[in-house]
Design a protein around this nucleic acid. Sequence first.
RNA 1: CGGGGUGUAGCUUAGCCUGGUAGAGCGCUACGUUCGGGACGUAGAGGUCGUCAGUUCGAAUCUGACCACCCCGACCA
Length: 581
Amino acid sequence: MFWTHTLIPTLKETPAEAEITSHKLLLRAGLIRKLSGGLYTFLPLGLRALRKVEQIIREEMNRAGALEVLMPALQPPEIWQQSGRYETAADVLYKVRDRARKEWVLSPTAEEVITTLTAAEINSYRQLPVNFYQVSVKFRDEIRPRFGLMRAREFIMKDAYSFDVSDDAAMVCYRKMYDTYKRIFDRCGLKNFPVEADTGVIGGNYSHEFMVPAETGENEVVFCEGCGYAANIEKAASAAPKGQAGAAGAAVEKFATPGVVTIDALTKAPFNVPAEKQIKTLVYIAESKPVLLLLRGDDQLNDAKLAGAIGTPTFRPAEPDEIVAALGAHPGSLGAVSSTLSSEPGKGLRIYADERLRGATDRTTGANQDGFHLRNVSIDRDIQVTGWADLRTVKAGEPCAKCGKPLNIRRAIEVGHVFKLGTKYSEKLGSSFLAEDGQRRPCVMGCYGIGVTRTLQAVIEQSNDANGIIWPISVAPYTVCITPLSVAPDSAVMKLAQKIYADLTARGIDVILDDRDDRPGVKFKDADLVGFPIRIAIGEKSLAKGEVELKPRGGVLTPIKPEEVVEKVEALIRDAMAVGS
RNA sequence: CGGGGUGUAGCUUAGCCUGGUAGAGCGCUACGUUCGGGACGUAGAGGUCGUCAGUUCGAAUCUGACCACCCCGACCA
């Protein structure tokens, strides 16, 4: 490709809309342009990089035996109602109507469609296992699109769905996809690591996310350098000490705490109750009923764990008036001690306590009367707990549950997610098979997603410098940029540039020739900004010495003879591509 | 949806407080001089000042509503 024959609208200045480095560079390097919030046009260069990522994904999915299909983005709401996600995923579903006012759903993912397909087409154990995938546009009504391609209303996703005869067989497939994902992200030049993850609204019982470490990432990941344990903070557990369980002491005693409405205020004089000796009481509404959640005063509730504990994905913090209605007091004086509750625990009011409170004695909590607290509370004696669960959020420095070493927390970008789904969708949508023993059984499913557009941006977020993007060769829009410093058609410089262009292109290498009649500085700056992995500069000065200049984007400039160019470039590409293959 | 912020040319912005009908840099066009890390000169093109309403003789500027975008929280690949 000749530079003047394509569109690469580089910008000297950063558009005000971009906040993080990768988003700024996507715009400045002329890879994308915004149409509206969370909606972007891929320009020729951005699309080339995107296609490279897609190609790697296709090669690895095919290698793993998955079958590529393409499902409709516009889907009937009936199958969503059948799976139950018409309600549970309602927040992210874009809905449109046709001329007859019939409603349709824009696909955020495709479990329903693929399962409808296999319900009709897969009938025998002889057809299993099978794994279908597609690369397509997905739509999600995000609460807040942001950071360019990182969280968009419309994005490219690779989604795959596996069907197996048994749980064990599904696990084999899960492992294969796990390994495949590792290879895909390695080949994209990304530093990445898998972490244990929460399953969220998709459901299922086992899952890992693939994370790319980045300060600008939207996820927090807990990891242990001792044993390699790693988990999303939504899922992570630690061996945080529970504190000694003793015998219940003195009777519960009410005391006045006028104006004290925070954990922190109660730690101060004249009360001096340490946060870890307090029981924090939170009120949530799940399925229209209040639920009390008890945690140590110095612990934070983890929403994802809460969802698992109460067994419903839809819940919300109670409004102040709902809290007063349920407990008779305002936040700051709430508690779960049986004698202070108007309604019997178990009869409508559920109480879940964090594992860390098991056996707790000598605690202080609210009295369900504004301005009063209770001391000497023993949880086993004084509180009727409906269920125990891990409800707290892990903090950095706590001992690893597996090896005891201190845990670390870092931010990361989620680029992929693998789930073991079980039979949730296959049962609801009737995807079953006749087994060898003549029994009909539901397929055991797994699903596997990669945010393709997000992966592309993660590459940029991870690989750049003050001058611009540093593309890994595997996903660069062009591998080589030839920069002739004179573009007069009959000049020796331009003639050599065109010869090298033809030679490299003939070897199947992606080359762009910067034939713009601009000053060298402009061309060098743009080549660095866009970040082509290899630049070959040809000027009259070096040519007089019988040389051209070869410069890897992140490396040092080396003068070489023109006839060595093809060989050197191929060597560089070979070295780079050795990663992950 | 709650909280905060911003809307002036393709991009970055000045002007707004104190009302008098818009200016710069980059980019773009032409010509000339330059030519190894974002050159310079001359001459140009390009603006419903987010939208609507109000106040006023007069609104980019003051008031109100709305819209869009950005940031913080919940959501997710």
